[in-house]
Design a protein around this nucleic acid. Structure first.
Length: 527
RNA sequence: GCGGGUAUAGCUUAGUGGUAAAGCCCUAGCCUUCCAAGCUAGUUAUGUGGGUUCGAUUCCCACUACCCGCUCCA
């Protein structure tokens, strides 16, 4: 996808989805039962790919740093945590629908209006005897005349007509009365039509804990966490007290989060169950903005290291007024997916908002005592929060390529190849005996499999012609293949004995390498 | 959530109100000395549930899922 265009590319995305299923990267959840909306399962290769991503992230951010510590919090979350964080009250959108156009509107974003409301109780059609009783209203703003209002009402009632041949114009409106209203948000500013009652659509999955939990017992309510961040904030004190760390330091977590998205879309990109890779990096207030910029750079480097080049990433500096209310600075790192430029990760400076609300909510101090300055401070926090599933999808999209190759006879064909970085490729090396009906070759290949498999994911394959086996591995992104031939078993002299052909995925070049050096050679390239 | 579209084998596509076809893939065997070779054999499908009908994969209805647009994404 080196020539990725920002325009939508549905055909490309369909090919990628098809490959993911065919080769066992990603399946639809509960497919044999018709599928579960917005849920996906990772197949054998997808599981390897995702694991490689998570392990590399953990290695770079936890293992190789002494100032970041790991955490693995529970998914089931105490309701008090999410009340304090603002999710119970605020993690919802009041939505209402226009009764006329069915447009969906955010109730809290409707500009209040004033005018005269015309109420009706129903409509009838004298000729056919049809009638409907249903309350409806239209807001007439200054300048609207009555005929326009009645036309809107007739269009509304016409929706209930069984006979679509009847013109809305011939309907009689019943029960008309008027009412003056000021600053109302119950009507669609576009057309004056009455809206449905606002319904809160909370994006959190709620559950009840305990065997005896009954519907009326509010205290049994728990939630599936909508982000991994909260368990980090809630355990901030415990980590601090148990680990003897000093500011600045971070707590990292990889784990599942759940949001009841209204509209899951774009394959695994927006799912209801998803995995996050988050760091909360705590610091002194004066360092927050600087560290936000530093983290942005560090994260961009990370994406380059796993094979997503900087030129396919976009950094969005979210302007004042568009950031979440708690954030003093936010960068979005976006990737050019075939379906558009979409967010992979947010790097947000959350100030002391989170520790502040939990200090208030729990009544427990979240303060940090600085031994040098002898002062107590409430640390600020910088949060690089990456979507794991989104990054896996980006890795697959970035790696996908259909290459035209010409064989010796001049015949052109399409080679589908996933150009994964060796570091994250699900299978590191394919091991083939040149021929499967020669026991010496098979035996030697099995030996090599045994040597390498403790160190990396290997795939042994003896079926079909050697070229086909190479292509199979190309399609799943295996960077190297090793072939055992007659040289290996010493048929062509001592100097070639115990050497194998090493074939590289991208160049399709082959070189001769001693079996004894294979492990080191491969490990050098996949670390 | 609204509107539009789609649903036949692992994939890509035929087709039919009366036994569902092909190519690729896959599996096994033979053969085969490095880039999807050949021969033989084989497995596998009408998304789910109703209705109409003697009979439905085909017609009708509902549901589900996916795709596109809108909406939404603290």
């Amino acid at each position: 996808m080196s020539d990725a265009s920002p325009e939508k590319n549905t055909a490309l995305m369909e090919k990628i989805v098809s490959l993911c299923k065919r080769r066992g990267f990603i399946f639809q959840s509960a497919e044999i039962y018709g599928g579960l909306n917005g849920c996906w399962d990772y197949g054998p290769l997808g599981a390897e790919l995702k694991r490689n991503l998570k392990e590399y992230w953990w290695r770079k951010n936890v293992q190789e740093r002494e100032d970041i510590l790991g955490l693995d919090g529970s998914i089931l979350t105490h309701q008090a945590v999410l009340k304090a964080s603002g999710h119970v009250g605020g993690f919802s959108d009041p939505m209402c629908d226009c009764l006329l156009s069915n447009a969906r509107l955010r109730a809290d974003q409707i500009v209040p209006q004033s005018g005269t409301v015309y109420w009706f109780t129903g409509a009838s059609h004298a000729e056919s005897g049809w009638s409907v009783e249903r309350d409806y209203g239209v807001l007439a703003m200054a300048g609207d005349d009555e005929s326009k209002v009645r036309k809107t009402a007739r269009q509304y009632y016409a929706q209930f007509l069984a006979d679509k041949q009847i013109s809305p114009k011939t309907l009689e409106l019943t029960g008309e009365r008027t009412e003056a209203m000021t600053e109302t948000t119950r009507f669609n500013p576009e057309n004056g039509s009455l809206l449905t009652e606002a319904r809160a659509f909370n994006l959190m999955f709620q559950t009840r804990m305990g065997a005896s939990s009954d519907e009326s017992d509010e205290s049994s309510i728990a939630y599936l966490r909508p982000e991994t961040a909260q368990s980090i904030f809630v355990q901030f004190k415990n980590v601090l007290d148990s680990s003897r760390v000093k500011l600045p330091f971070g707590i990292a977590q990889i784990g599942k989060s759940f949001r009841n998205e209204i509209n899951p879309r774009n394959f695994t990109f927006r799912s209801r169950e998803f995995e996050q890779m988050e760091i909360e990096f705590f610091c002194r207030p004066e360092d927050g903005l600087r560290l936000t910029d530093e983290w942005l750079e560090r994260r961009l480097t990370f994406y380059e290291e796993i094979g997503i080049p900087r030129e396919h990433l976009h950094v969005l500096d979210i302007p004042d007024g568009e950031r979440a209310f708690y954030s003093a600075k936010t960068y979005d790192i976006e990737y050019e997916f075939p379906f558009g430029i979409q967010e992979l990760e947010g790097v947000a400076y959350r100030t002391d908002y989170d520790l502040g609300v939990h200090q208030k909510g729990s009544g427990k101090s979240m303060e940090y005592f600085d031994e040098e300055t002898k002062e107590k401070i409430l640390p600020h926090v910088v949060e690089p929060s990456a979507g794991c599933d989104r990054t896996v999808l980006a890795l697959i999209c970035e790696a996908f390529e259909e290459e035209t190759v010409t064989d010796e006879k001049g015949k052109e064909e399409i080679r589908t190849v996933l150009r994964f970085s060796p570091r994250i490729a699900p299978i590191k090396v394919g091991i083939f005996p040149l021929l499967k009906n020669k026991p010496e070759l098979v035996e030697k290949a099995r030996e090599i499999q045994k040597i390498l498999s403790p160190f990396m994911t290997v795939f042994y394959d003896e079926a079909a012609a050697i070229g086909r086996r190479y292509r199979r591995q190309d399609e799943v992104g295996t960077p190297y293949c090793v072939t055992v031939d007659f040289d290996t078993i010493g048929e062509n002299g001592e100097e070639l004995k115990d050497t194998v052909t090493l074939r590289e995925r991208d160049s399709m070049k082959q070189e001769r390498i001693p079996i004894a050096k294979l492990r080191e050679f491969l490990l050098d390239r996949i670390q």
